[in-house]
Design a protein around this nucleic acid. Structure first.
Lengths: 194, 194
DNA sequence: ACTGTCAATTGACACCGTGTCAAGTAATCA
DNA sequence: TGATTACTTGACACGGTGTCAATTGACAGT
């Protein structure tokens, strides 16, 4: 049990992540994961109670490695509402492609899986906070377009930068990440900034 | 076989639609549908080769009854780009709630079901046409904001009025249809109209 | 009345994926 | 030595889709 060996649990998490990446988040079952981790399918259940739990644990693992929270700390350098807005799109827009394969199956099962829905909402909270701060800052600066309540504006902000929209524009419509980020910034500024 | 009796095929379609409406598009299987149509599960397959085919046929059936195409003819009264844009949001925004229960399972299976994806794209084409006409009209009027290519603008238009966004704003965030339509019009105008 | 056909029925079965259980094994710890 | 831990194997239940064969009942044409 030296610190160099990786625990079985970690190996499962890594295998899950890797397989999801390879298959763009689709068609990965428990057998595949077990095989990739070098253990039997049943052994996976010794570490994770269900597929849902494994997915959630994988998300936390990836979040830890990729560090969205740390990235969002780049906000410290942003001062004005517009700077915050642009930083938000930069950070989130570059983060989505890195987690898309993992996020996709979670989004897909959200509707039928209560636990998944809760875990997802929870992990999106840090993003929502950031959107809210941005909207509040704009309002404080008197730059928020008349008519928006902070709640409505935050709802719309979150909706516009949703993974679904990113997917539609990049994967379906063929936009590059740069295109996405550039247009999304313009869209958000025209929508919220006076 | 008088014209008053409904064919079994039609009864299946009606049962499917009704069940989807009742259950908000989720957890409806072939057994349920057969039971609701008053036939055996296996008999459903005498009329539809697969669940996917049944869903697609149901969509066509509902489209026929609800008549999106006819509604989109209301465009004839719209002249300017802005009128077109507003008519589009009015028509589509009021249509979504009527088909959401049917659209939801189609959107969900799209990713894993090639045939479903094709059918969906196909049925969205009339909407895409309308978006394109709107963008083209704005451009002709010199009112399209600089920087948008017609293709990019249409991609963004379609993305903004997507069912996913409607779902996020109304069902998840609690907006009313009126709120949705009102804000969506403002959003689109500020995004595209100079 | 006989025959064919059509729609639907019943029951059984295959396949896949998730999740569970019991019994066994191999290594490690005390 | 004996207990514990991690994992293995094989079997099985469940739910859902899709398939197949054999059967029934009704309605047609001759």
């Amino acid at each position: 049990m030296s610190s160099e060996e990786i625990s079985t649990k970690t190996r499962i998490l890594q295998a899950t992540w890797q397989l999801l990446e390879q298959h763009q988040g689709q068609g990965v079952n428990m057998s595949d994961i077990a095989k990739a981790a070098g253990i039997s399918r049943q052994a996976v259940y010794l570490h994770f109670a269900s597929r849902t739990e494994l997915m959630i644990a994988t998300m936390n693992y990836v979040d830890e490695v990729k560090g969205l929270n740390e990235r969002l700390n780049l906000f410290n350098s942003a001062k004005t509402g517009i700077e915050l807005l642009e930083a938000c799109v930069d950070i989130w827009g570059n983060y989505i492609p890195e987690i898309y394969s993992l996020a996709k199956p979670m989004l897909m099962s959200r509707d039928t899986d209560e636990a998944m829905a809760a875990a997802w909402t929870n992990s999106m909270n840090c993003l929502r906070d950031v959107c809210q701060v941005t909207i509040d800052t704009l309002k404080r600066e008197g730059k928020l377009i008349k008519g928006w309540s902070p709640k409505e504006a935050t709802d719309m902000f979150m909706t516009l930068i949703s993974i679904n929209n990113w997917e539609q524009l990049t994967i379906e419509s063929g936009w590059t990440t740069e295109q996405y980020i550039s247009w999304m910034k313009r869209l958000l500024k025209r929508t919220f900034v006076d």
